[in-house]
Computed example of a mutant assay.
Amino acid sequence: MSELSPRVNSAILPRFIGHMVRIPCKVLTTTDSTVTVQTSDGGEVLVKYSGDHGISTSYAEIIGQVIDQTTVKKAAVINLQSELDLQMVDRVIKSIHDPRFFSTIFS
């Protein structure tokens, strides 16, 4: 079975160091090797990449491996619509990671 990649926000990200995650986010800035994104809870995460970052919209879902508490190494990008209600996304992420539901969803 391949590794699961749960959706996370910046507060939950540190729990997944070394693992693959999905980060629904708003793109803030880009450089030649990094993208800074705003997560659903308003935090900022640095996304490292090589080659093309692949982001073509203001909102995206970054799939990548967590390097440390605020950094992810990009594996893939899913471009999302031009508008995304990050507050609603954050409520869903918090529900998913609620101890009452997490093991049921990811077991």
Rank of each mutant, 00 (worst) to 15 (best):
Val47Ile: 11
Gly43Arg: 06
Gly43Ile: 15
Lys73His: 06
Met20Gln: 08
Ser10Met: 12
Ser33Ala: 13
His53Ser: 01
Met20His: 10
Ser10Gln: 08
Thr34Gly: 02
Val72Tyr: 00
Gly18Tyr: 08
Ser103Ile: 03
Thr36Tyr: 00
Arg91Lys: 15
Ile23Ala: 04
Cys25Val: 09
Phe16Tyr: 15
Ser107Gln: 06
Asp41Ile: 02
Ile62His: 09
Ile63Ser: 01
His53Pro: 06
Ser5Cys: 05
Glu83Asn: 04
Gly51Phe: 15
Asn79Asp: 04
Arg7Ser: 09
Lys26Leu: 14
Thr104Ala: 01
Ser95Val: 12
Lys94Cys: 13
Met1Asp: 11
Ala75Thr: 14
Lys74Leu: 08
Val77Phe: 03
Phe106Pro: 11
His19Arg: 14
Ser40His: 09
Val21Gly: 06
Ile96Cys: 05
Thr29Pro: 10
Ile96His: 04
Leu46Thr: 11
Leu13Thr: 03
Arg91Phe: 04
Pro6Arg: 05
Pro14Phe: 03
Ile12Ala: 01
Ile55Glu: 00
Lys94Trp: 03
Ile105Gly: 00
Gly54Phe: 13
Phe16Pro: 11
Arg7Pro: 10
Thr57Asn: 12
Lys73Ser: 09
Ser5Lys: 10
Ser2Asp: 14
Val37Leu: 11
Val35Tyr: 12
Asn9Ala: 04
Cys25Glu: 05
Gln87Ala: 11
Glu61Met: 05
Ile62Ser: 07
Ala60His: 03
Arg22Leu: 14
Asp68Trp: 07
Leu84Val: 14
Val47Ala: 02
Asn79Pro: 00
Asp68Thr: 05
His97Asp: 13
Ile55Cys: 09
Val66Pro: 03
Val45Phe: 07
Pro24Thr: 15
Lys94Asp: 15
Lys94Val: 12
Thr70Ile: 14
Arg7Leu: 07
Ile12Glu: 01
Thr30Trp: 05
Gly54Lys: 01
Ser2Ala: 06
Ile17Tyr: 10
Thr34Lys: 06
Phe101Ser: 10
Glu44Ser: 05
Ile63Asp: 00
Ser40Pro: 14
Ser82His: 09
Cys25Asp: 05
Met20Thr: 10
Gln65Lys: 04
Gln87Ser: 09
Ser95Ala: 13
Ser58Asn: 05
Val45Gln: 02
Thr57Val: 09
Lys94Ala: 13
Lys94Asn: 15
Glu44Gly: 04
Ile78Trp: 13
Ile12Ser: 02
Phe16Lys: 02
Gln81Arg: 13
Gly42Pro: 09
Asp85Cys: 09
Met20Arg: 11
Tyr49Trp: 03
Met1Arg: 01
Val66Tyr: 02
Arg22Thr: 10
Tyr49Lys: 05
Ser50Trp: 10
Gly18Val: 13
Cys25Asn: 03
Ser56Thr: 04
Gly42Met: 06
Ala76Arg: 14
Val8Gly: 01
Thr39Tyr: 15
Thr31Asp: 12
Ala75Leu: 15
Thr71Trp: 02
Ile23Asp: 10
Thr71Phe: 01
Thr29Cys: 10
Lys94Pro: 15
Gly51Ser: 06
Gly54Arg: 03
Lys94Leu: 14
Ser107Arg: 07
Arg22Phe: 06
Ile55Trp: 08
Val21His: 12
Asn79Ala: 12
Val66Ala: 00
